[in-house]
Amino acid sequence: MNHPLKTSLLAGLLASLLSAAAHAGTGLTELPGQGSDGPVTVYYPSDADDVPVSRGPFRLRLAPGGAPARGNGRLVVISHGSGGAPWVHADLARALVQAGFVVAMPEHHADNYKNTRNPGPDSWKLRPAEVSRAIDAVARDPRFAPLLALDKVGMYGMSAGGHTALSLAGGRWSPARFKAHCEAHIADDFPACVGLFTRLTGGLLDGVKKAAAVGVIGHRFDDATWYTHHDPRVAAVVAGVPAAADFDAASLATPRVPLGLVTAGRDRWLTPRFHSDRIVQACTPCERIAHLPDAGHGALLSPPVPPEVMGALETDLLGDPPGFDRAVLPEVDRRIAAFFRTHLTTGP
C-alpha cells in the first residue's frame, strides 16, 4: 500500500461509496451531433442498475437508457485519441460518473474507429470546436440540461485528444511546427510523425521511409498559422500522454485554466522528451496528476483494446510494456476525478 498511486486510495474509496449511495448505475446514451458532426456518447449518473453490455469487442457494465439522476451538476468532455472509440475510456467515464459528473464524448471527424481517413494536424484543427459543440449538444438535451450548470466544464483528452486538451487550456500550435519537428526528428519520433502507416525496422528501407515521410509532411503541413481555441465554459483541463511537439511551449507556461497532466515513461508512440516532457517543463503551475514510469502510450486506454483486434504495429505501440501493472489505473482515474472535483465543484 506504499505505492505513490495508492496513497489516496482510502479517500477515493470513501468518495466512491458516498457517490454510489446517490445513484445505482452508469447510464449510457447517444446524442446527435450538430450539422455534420458525429454522435456524442454520454455517460451519466442513473437510478437504473448496471447490466452487462457489449460494445464492439468490449464487455462493459452500464445502464443503457437508464433514467438520469442528479449528480454534482458538472459536465466533463472526453476527447479520444486517433482512431478512438467511446468505449476505450469507459473506466475513466465510470470513475467520473461515480464522482457525480456527466461525461460527454464527441466522435472526432475522420479520426475515429469508424473512419480513420484524416488524422494528425487536419483533425487537430477541428477537434476543439467539436468539443465545444458536444457541450452544446448536452445543453440542448432536456434530460441533462436541468441537471447541469455549464459555466464550468471539465475537459480530458488522451494522445490526439491530449492535443485537443492543450488547445483548450490556452496553447497555440501550427502545422508548420509539426513539419519542422518531423524534419528534425523523423528517426527519433517516427510513429508520432507517420502513425500506423509503417515503421522503421533497422533495415535497408528505413532511409527511403524517412525521406518519403518528410516529403509528404512537408507538402501537406507548411501552414504557419497559429491555431488556438477558446471556450469560456471550459474551466479545468487534463491532458494524458498528449501529442505536443507542435505547440509553442511558452503558450502553456501559464495556462488559462488549471491544467493537469498524466504521463507515461515508456511511451513509444509519442516520445516523451518531444511531447509531454516539454509541457511538464514549460508549465510550472501544472499539476502532475500521475506519472507512470513503466507505462506505454496505451496505458490510459481502459479497458484496453483486445490484442486480437489490433495489428502488429498497433500492438507494438499501444501494448503494455513488460512490468507495467494495470492495477494502478483505478487510482489514476480517481485522481483525475478529484482534480475536476476541486476545480469545478468548489470555490466561486
Rank of each mutant, 00 (worst) to 15 (best):
K6I: 06
T7M: 12
L9Y: 07
A11C: 04
L13Q: 15
L14S: 12
S16A: 15
L18S: 14
S19L: 09
A20Q: 14
A20Y: 02
H23I: 02
A24N: 14
L31Q: 04
G35D: 14
S36F: 02
D37A: 12
G38D: 11
P39C: 03
T41K: 00
Y44E: 03
P45C: 10
D50Y: 02
P52F: 00
V53Q: 04
R55M: 08
R55S: 08
P57M: 05
R59W: 00
P68Q: 10
R70S: 14
N72F: 01
S79M: 05
S79H: 03
G83Q: 07
A85H: 05
L92N: 07
R94Y: 00
V97P: 02
Q98M: 04
F101L: 08
F101C: 08
V103C: 03
V103H: 00
M105R: 03
P106Y: 00
D111I: 03
N112I: 11
N112G: 11
N115M: 08
G120R: 05
P121C: 08
W124S: 10
L126F: 01
D136G: 05
D136Q: 10
A137N: 06
V138I: 10
A139W: 00
A139D: 13
R140T: 12
R143S: 09
R143A: 14
A145C: 06
L148M: 08
D151T: 09
D151L: 03
K152L: 05
Y156E: 11
G162R: 02
H163K: 07
L168N: 01
G170L: 02
W173T: 10
R177I: 05
F178R: 09
H181Q: 13
H181A: 11
E183Y: 06
E183W: 03
H185K: 10
I186A: 15
G195S: 10
T198N: 13
R199N: 11
A212K: 11
G215N: 15
I217Y: 03
I217R: 06
F221W: 15
F221P: 05
T225W: 02
T225E: 13
H229V: 00
A235I: 04
A236Q: 10
V238F: 00
V238T: 10
V238L: 06
V241L: 04
A243N: 07
A243S: 14
A245C: 13
A245N: 11
D246Q: 15
A250F: 01
A250S: 13
T254Q: 15
P255Y: 07
V257M: 03
L259Y: 06
V262E: 04
A264R: 03
W269N: 13
W269E: 13
T271F: 00
P272S: 11
R273H: 12
R273A: 12
F274L: 07
F274Q: 06
T284V: 11
E287G: 03
R288Q: 15
I289Q: 05
A290F: 01
G296Q: 05
H297W: 04
G298C: 08
G298R: 04
G298Y: 01
L301N: 12
V305T: 14
G311R: 11
A312M: 07
E314W: 00
L318G: 01
G323E: 11
F324Q: 07
F324K: 05
F324C: 07
V328Q: 08
P330N: 08
E331Q: 15
R334Q: 15
R334T: 13
A337H: 04
A338L: 06
A338Y: 01
F339W: 04
F339L: 08
H343I: 07
T345F: 01
T346S: 14
P348S: 13
P348Q: 12
P348K: 12
P348W: 01
